[in-house]
Design a protein around this nucleic acid. Structure first.
Ligand SMILES: Nc1ncnc2c1ncn2[C@@H]1O[C@H](COP(=O)(O)OP(=O)(O)OP(=O)(O)O)[C@@H](O)[C@H]1O
Length: 727
DNA sequence: CACACCAGTGTTTTT
DNA sequence: CACTGGTGTG
């Protein structure tokens, strides 16, 4: 193992070309599982081997986790054999997301646009709190226009520039006018607080490059080789950053697959891939044509579905791994039944020797994880959730972070607003609002106003002492001291079990545990002083909850989260109209196409087996509704899929027994298009063609809920209107 | 200003 | 159904 691996090993000729590519821009276009990411890793290794100093290389990934994985792969290829475990100080290229890279640029150069290097990064919750605060100050009725609606618009505007939102928003002038006002107040509040949001992490570096050519030159001087993964989902700003750096670099490799562009709702677009040769004069485009991951039987089914997208260039891809079992479709009674069925099938795979971590369950929305979690837990199968519902969203953890954040950054009113509420210290909304207003009016920092509030004297004094002692403190110590001095630890009960055991009980108990966990994480964080604390806070804002490795556990995640991963066996649950495609993404053809890509991404994560399922009834807001199976299921040619929809009821006893009780394979129904028991597509005399989302009642009382492009969702009493059933 | 309770409310997807 | 924010009272 002491001999470093040849970076060209395990690559096909096309990949090799990308890896050996000498100079200039190169776009690698290829379907799922064709080894694009491997090509990036190998290229980085090759560059370093050829003597390029690692810090001249910048690699952009879509998630922090992907960056971490890439870092490991590069490190092990480069330094395998040479004293393992000490990888820390190793020379490795900088790998991370556009946002993390943007943050890094802003820490260095932000001063040029008036940003202090210690800026805070607001996450979704902070943004939300801030917008609500502004709405309150401006007397905007949230019932009429919700904070999230404002926030959505603010983000779009910040991302795509002004004008873009106006066109897309159907809210009328009243909203448009207010929205602009709120947006400006929001941005003012951010800069007053010395804070940035996620959009800023892209937008401000773009501005830096545009307005300060010297900075762009400096960055170009450093980054000689740029590599960007998942290029099909970059937003306009990210494309501009790529271009700014890429054009000045010795080489630029972008890789992507248009069919996996699934973040359009966030501004992501495959546009920059399509216009690559125009944007990068002298740029070349290279294709990979072999899928090394997915069995032919699954890949061809996925391929047939994705072909239904009209706005798409056909590309050829061949499965290196022939044969295999076609995807299996299973029908269940309801979501619990489905979850139990999935758990049963998972148990069966494990019993046959599969490793739990080689199995994944994908769904469209996070809420779907719940029944699946319950069923897995009952069956005694270990699992971990990947993505959302993070540890860092827990109230106590947010409190603690807000506390630490305010301690290093006393001008941040959003953090302070949390801190001042826990524990209560006789200062409320009114006093705070007054202080914010005074600061704004006088143009003074927020903290200067806090000094004037008598009740805060103790807290402020403590903070000064804390700040004085900070340079010598490690992150964990600094956090602990802040929590202690702010009274938070005492308020929550410091968990020594001594004295005051609250009877309100488990809420505080949980909080204490979460706090312990946070302290543990903070203690592991390297470095000391303000810089380390800021780095810690930044890490938490940019990649919350990515430390859990998971070990031997089944992976549960949304299809969005599944991007870039691979598993032996995948389960796609909840394949129903309204869920996939999601009812809120079914208005336009382009939205439906993105949903179709999501399905494609999910299916192409599988190496060996894919199980697709839907429930006939699903509860929404507590009430059960009948469902209609996803159109994407019926788009798979019948010969390429196995419909097991007959007796797929889970033996009820299974879950309770907790062991791998007999799981009867459902009867195999000959491959055939299921005749829809209920209508899927209807034509209404007024609303036109609509996709049926649910059917209730029967006979004369039958009501159909359908979504009509341009009209939205309508519930129609069948007997009341002459409606044609198209399918 | 703090706390308790109740009603209304809402579900995409995430850096 | 589960949550959270608003409301009313001490
Ligand atoms: N030349 C090759 N020969 C054999 N296996 C390969 C080769 N290149 C890549 N692989 C394997 O194929 C699988 C897919 O590779 P990789 O993840 O790099 O593909 P990708 O194009 O990035 O996929 P996706 O776009 O679907 O995320 C991995 O298991 C990888 O190890």
């Amino acid at each position: 193992m002491a001999t470093p691996e040849n970076p060209l090993r395990g690559l096909d000729p096309d990949q090799r070309e990308a890896v050996l590519h000498e100079s200039g821009p190169l776009l690698l276009v290829a379907g799922a599982g064709s080894g694009k990411t491997r090509a990036i890793v190998s290229r980085i290794v090759r560059l370093v081997r050829d003597g390029v100093p690692p810090d001249r290389i910048l690699g952009i990934t879509f998630t922090n986790r992907a960056a971490e994985e890439m870092r490991e792969r590069v490190a092990s290829a480069l330094y395998a054999g040479s004293s393992p475990g000490t990888g820390e100080g190793r020379d490795l290229p900088w790998l991370g997301t556009f946002h993390a890279f943007g943050a890094r640029l802003l820490r260095r150069f932000g001063g040029r646009i008036g940003l202090s290097p210690g800026f805070v990064i607001y996450d979704a919750r902070d943004q939300f709190d801030l917008v609500r605060q502004i709405l309150k100050e401006k007397n905007v009725d949230e019932k009429k226009f919700s904070a999230s609606r404002f926030l959505g618009r603010i983000e779009r505007t910040k991302r795509d520039g002004e004008g873009s939102s106006v066109l897309r928003e159907a809210g009328g002038w009243a909203f448009a006018g207010k929205a602009e006002e709120v947006r400006i107040a929001y941005d003012d509040a951010l800069s007053a607080a010395g804070a940035v949001d996620f959009a800023d992490l892209i937008r401000l570096p773009v501005r830096l490059f545009r307005e300060h050519p010297g900075i762009l030159e400096a960055v170009r001087g450093e980054i000689r080789h740029l590599l960007v993964d998942e290029f099909q989902d970059v937003d306009a700003g990210q494309a501009e950053l790529s271009r700014g750096i890429g054009l000045g670099a010795e080489s630029f490799l972008a890789v992507g697959d248009e069919d996996q562009s699934i973040y359009g709702w966030r501004g992501g677009s495959a546009g920059p891939m399509l216009s690559f040769e125009r944007d990068y004069p002298g740029g070349r485009v290279l294709h990979l044509r072999t899928n090394y991951r997915t069995r032919a039987a699954i890949l061809s089914a996925a391929g047939e579905v994705i072909r239904k997208n009209r706005s798409r260039r056909e590309k050829r891809i061949e499965a290196a791994r022939e044969g295999g079992d076609p995807p299996v479709v299973r029908q269940y009674e309801d979501s619990d039944d489905e979850a139990a069925g999935v758990a049963g099938a998972v148990a069966e795979q494990i019993r046959k020797g599969a490793s739990p971590s080689s199995i994944a369950v994908f769904y469209r929305v996070n809420a779907q994880s719940r029944p699946v979690e319950d069923a897995l837990r009952q069956a005694g199968i270990p699992y971990i959730l990947r993505g959302a519902l993070s540890f860092y969203d827990r109230a106590a953890v947010r409190d603690a972070i807000a506390c630490l954040r305010w301690f290093v950054h006393p001008d941040d009113p959003v953090s302070f607003a949390r801190l001042v509420k826990a524990p209560r210290r006789g200062v409320g909304e009114v006093t705070l609002a007054r202080a914010r207003e005074a600061a704004r009016a006088a143009g003074t920092p927020f903290s200067a106003e806090l000094v004037k509030i008598p009740r805060l004297a103790g807290l402020l004094e403590f903070r000064d002492r804390w700040a004085a002692g900070l340079p010598a403190r490690k992150v964990g110590e600094a956090l602990h001291a802040a929590l202690d001095g702010s009274g938070y630890l005492a308020w929550i009960g410091d968990g020594d079990g001594s004295g005051t055991e609250e009877r309100s009980g488990n809420g505080k108990e949980d909080s204490r545990e979460n706090l312990q966990e946070l302290l543990r994480i903070a203690n592991l964080f390297p470095g000391s002083g303000e810089e380390a604390v800021c780095a810690f806070l930044e890490r938490i804002s940019l990649s919350p909850g990515e430390e859990e490795e998971g070990g031997e556990a089944v992976r549960l995640m949304t299809m969005h989260n599944a991007k870039g991963l691979e598993f032996e066996t995948v389960y796609l649950a909840g394949l129903e109209e309204g869920l996939l495609p999601h009812s809120r993404s079914a208005d336009s053809e382009s939205e439906v196409e993105e949903e179709r890509r999501l399905f494609y991404v999910g299916l192409t994560r599988a190496r060996e087996r894919a199980f697709l399922s839907f429930a006939r009834r699903r509860s929404l807001f507590g009430a059960f509704r009948d469902t209609v199976l996803s159109r994407f299921l019926t788009e798979i040619p019948p010969s390429m899929v196995r419909w097991h929809v007959g007796t797929s009821r889970t033996p009820r006893g299974f879950a309770r027994s907790g062991t791998a009780a007999p799981w009867r394979a459902p009867a195999i129904v000959p491959a055939a298009e299921p005749s829809p028991a209920r209508p899927r597509l209807v034509r209404h005399p007024m609303f036109g063609d609509g996709v049926v989302e649910a059917v209730e009642g029967s006979g004369d009382d039958r009501k159909i809920t359908a979504r009509f492009p341009g009209y939205g969702r309508k519930k129609i009493l069948v007997r009341a209107v002459r409606m044609e059933i198209l399918y």
